[in-house]
Nucleic acid binder design. Structure first.
Length: 461
RNA sequence: GGCUGCGUAGCAAAGUGGUUAUGCAGUGGCCUGCAAAGCCAUCUACAGCGGUUCGAUUCCGCUCGCAGCCUCCA
């Protein structure tokens, strides 16, 4: 029985889909004006695993993740680059998809874009006007009147009067209440625009998600996710817009993932302490990054460091080593599968799920030389469970021989095989000094030899 | 200032009112020509102070420390 932590109630709840067997999930995606960093990678991987596990559990899932392809930062960046907005956004959408594929993140079922959802956006704002929740400010922008929506603050646990105590925000004089937010922003000269009943302009950030989620999943759906920082004001505002417009419930379960940190500090654009996915991929293989992400629970902070990535690489090496040289027989489902499901059912507890995989690896290592059929069945079960996490699907030999980190140059495979042949000769001649020298020399170059029953295998450190 | 959340062994990271998490590292053993890998055993814990309890790392309170949100941010 799946339990998910719901930010709205601040507790783990038994997950019950609106329609039996069917799940609609919407995740706030990227604003495409720059490369994805590791924080974005975490969102992609976390919700990819949620999607995989929902499907593994038998749900018919519709997974929607949007692309924000028009906003102030995009406009600004395009101007700086002296580039057309579409050229900029297309470039970074492609880059995002590259990163996604590298990290074995399966694409969402629907990937709506703000610029292609204008009719839905305008329709929703019109509805908000009709309900008396929207008004045009003195500067021509359209705002949402937060104090007209009784439930405002429920998601983030904030109260409007307490918020007002917090000042230091430059209050826009066009607003009636400082916490009113823009639904439709009037276009300035040289800014891109769409026509609307309120003049030429573009949508505010929050309305596009309300409109796209509703268009793709209906007025009311099961799961809405995103990073912790979206809780307020973004998701709070989405609720106000959607529930304000429809008069009904918007989302049942709100999921928020924790931040990636560097030196105990949030990784973010504004702090400038971020690493892009493509930078990190130069140093570490994609599966290592993926394992690093799922080695902590999705709501916990995840500290980024080389040590952590190295650890992830070593852990994967252990799992692949267990699978090495074992034939795969699928179909077995033992108590390990039960434990794995139990872990994942507990709010997607991937660290515990991974611990189950290690327990399987231990038994697999024992049975390898004992009961090869059982070993093969365990290996099959291990691979199957791992596929829910999106790891361990590579060929063990090629994973191990590629090494933990991305190699520059180094010995070619054929050269290594040649040295191994020479060493086998030396061993047959009982020339231990030569055999050890060959092994030590290879070790110097990061090649580890392992004598096993069937011969000598090698891997990169 | 208001509101969240966190503080677990050398490092990372789960979890639990009384019983082995797990990975890496350490120690002892088995295996090996010697190693590596693997297997077995084993040492380092639950920020501090009180309270509840037969018993708390786990529940409650306080203190200290850290992070996040309150402004665009995944």
């Amino acid at each position: 029985m799946l339990k998910i932590y719901n930010t709205l109630t601040r507790s783990k709840e038994i997950f019950t889909p609106r329609v039996a067997g069917k799940v609609g999930m919407y995740v706030c995606g990227m604003t495409v004006y720059d490369y994805c960093h590791i924080g974005h990678a975490r969102v992609m991987v976390v919700f990819d695993i949620a999607a995989r596990y929902l499907r593994y559990s038998g749900y018919d899932l519709t997974y929607v993740r949007n692309i924000t392809d028009i906003d102030d930062k995009i406009i600004k960046r395009a101007q700086e680059n002296n580039e057309q907005i579409v050229d900029l956004t297309e470039r970074f959408i492609d880059a995002m998809h590259d990163d996604e594929r590298a990290l074995a993140v399966l694409p969402p079922d629907i990937e709506p874009r703000a610029t292609k959802s204008m009719d839905d956006i305008i329709l929703m704002i019109t509805g908000l006007f009709e309900k008396g929740l929207a008004y045009t400010g003195t500067n021509g922008d359209v705002f949402y009147a937060v104090d007209k929506f009784p439930g405002y603050g429920a998601l983030s646990g904030k109260k409007l009067d307490e918020l007002q105590a917090g000042e230091r925000v430059e209050v826009d004089q066009a607003k009636k209440n400082p916490f009113d937010f823009v639904l439709w922003k009037k276009a300035k000269v040289d800014e891109p625009y769409w026509n609307s009943p309120w003049g030429r302009g573009r949508p505010g950030w929050h309305i596009e998600c309300s409109a796209m989620a509703t268009r793709c999943l209906g007025n009311h759906f099961d799961i809405h996710g995103g990073g912790m920082d979206l809780q307020f004001p973004h998701h709070e505002n989405e609720i106000a817009q959607s529930e304000g417009a429809t008069g009904g419930k918007f989302v049942n379960v709100w999921m928020h993932n924790g931040f990636v940190r560097i030196n105990e500090e949030k990784m973010s654009k504004s702090l400038g302490n971020f690493f892009t996915v493509r930078e990190v991929l130069k140093q570490y293989r994609p599966e290592v990054i993926r394992f690093f992400v799922l080695s902590s629970h999705y709501r916990s902070p995840l500290n980024y460091s080389d040590e952590q990535l190295d650890d992830a690489g070593m852990a994967l090496t252990r799992l692949y080593t267990a699978l090495r040289g074992v034939a795969i027989i699928t179909g077995l489902s033992t108590r390990y599968s039960e434990r794995f499901k139990q872990a994942m059912d507990d709010d997607f507890n991937t660290p515990v799920a991974v611990a189950v995989l290690f327990d399987m690896a231990r038994e697999l290592n024992k049975e390898k030389n004992n009961n090869s059929e059982l070993a093969s069945q365990l290996a099959g079960e291990l691979k199957e469970l791992s596929s829910v996490l999106g790891i361990l699907q590579d060929d063990p030999e090629s994973f191990l021989q590629a090494g933990d980190t991305v190699q520059e140059g180094g010995l070619a495979e054929q050269e290594i095989e040649l040295f191994i042949e020479q060493r086998i000769q030396a061993k047959q001649n009982k020339d231990w000094a030569l055999a050890d020298k060959i092994r030590d020399d290879l070790k110097q170059q990061g090649i580890v030899l392992e004598d096993v029953a069937t011969g000598t295998s090698w891997r990169r450190e």
